[in-house]
Amino acid sequence: MPRVISKNHIPNLLIHLKKSHDVFAPMEKEGEVVFGNVEDPTKVLLNYKTTLLPPKIYFLPPEEELFKVTNGRVQEEQLNNKFVVFGLSRKDLEAIVYLDQIMNKKPADTFYLNRRRAVTLIGVSEEEVGVPPGGDLILEKISDRYYRTLALTKKGKKIADLEFFEEKEINHKAKSHEATSKLDQILLDSELIARAIEWSRENYRQIWEHLGRVCLGCGICTYVCPLCYCTSTEDKTSFDQTVCSRCRKWDACTLPGFAKIAGGHNFRPTQAARYFNWFYHKFVRAYKEFGRAQCVACHRCQRYCPAGIDIEKVLEEIINAFQKAEPERKF
C-alpha cells in the first residue's frame, strides 16, 4: 500500500522538520515566488510555476566565504546545521542532479558537495512524476487531498516514516503531464542542438550579431538559471582590516570582463561573442563534457530577460537554419 500524506498534514510536517532543521520552501513575496526560510508553514506554496531564483542558491550561494582569516588565523568555511529544501519542482530537481554531476567531476568542488551533503531535498509535484528526477523524497499529488510519497534515499525514507504519513489505498491517479513546451521537445536531441550551435558560429553569424546588439549584458539569465555555475574568487576585508575572507561569488559569462586577463586583453571583446559563449557552453561544451545540454527548460531566462530574449525561439531559429543548410543530415 502506498504511503501518503494528507494536504492538511503538510504544515505539521514542516513544523516538525523545523525543530531540527532550517527549512526553506517557495512562498510569495512582492508578487514573485521565491525560496525562503519557512516561518509560517501555511504560507508555503505547493502549486506554483517557477521560483525567481533557482534552488542552487543553497548549494552554490550568490556569495560564500570559503576561508576566513582573523588576525592571521585561517579558518575554513564552517557549515551550520543540516537543512531541508521543500517544495522543489521536478525541473529544479533535475537541474540539481545535473549540477551534482558537474561538481562531482574530478577535481570535485568540495564546498558545493559539503552543502549538498547537509541538505534533504523534498520535491512536490502536482502532476505524475514518472521517472523520479532526483532528490530525497518526492510528494506526488494523487487526489485533491492526498500526496503519494516517493522516497529515493534513506534520508527521504526516514521522513516518509514519520507519523504525518499513513498507508492508504487511494483510487485516484496523479494528473498526467501537461503538454511539454517546445523547448522541452528541442532538448530531446542534445546532439542536434550542439551541431547546430557549432555550425551557427561561422555560418549563421547574423543571429549572434543581432543578439549581441539586443543583449544588455546584465547577467540575469545566468543568475536565474538552475544550471549556470560561473563564479569568481574575490577577497573581502573588514573595515579595521582585522578580518578578511576569500569569497566565491556568482559571475556571469555574459558580463563584459569575464574573459579579460591581466594587462587588459579580452578574449571575448564583444557582447555577441559573450552571448554566443553562453549558448556554446550550455549546448556544445556541456554536450561534449557531459553528453547533454545544460538546460531543463524551466523558462526562467526567458521570463526574466530584460531585453526579452527567448532562448526557445533562438534555438528553434538556429536549428531550422542548420537543417535547411545541411539537408544531407538525416534528422
Binding site: 568542488d109 574568487t233 578574449f267
Partner: peptide, 17 residues
C-alpha cells in the same frame, strides 16, 4: 587565461571546448 577556480568549474579560462 584568467584561471579562477583551477578545477574546471568556474568557466573563466575556457577556449572553445
Amino acid at each position: 587565461r584568467k584561471m579562477s577556480c583551477g578545477i574546471g568549474k568556474c568557466q573563466h579560462c575556457t577556449t572553445g571546448d
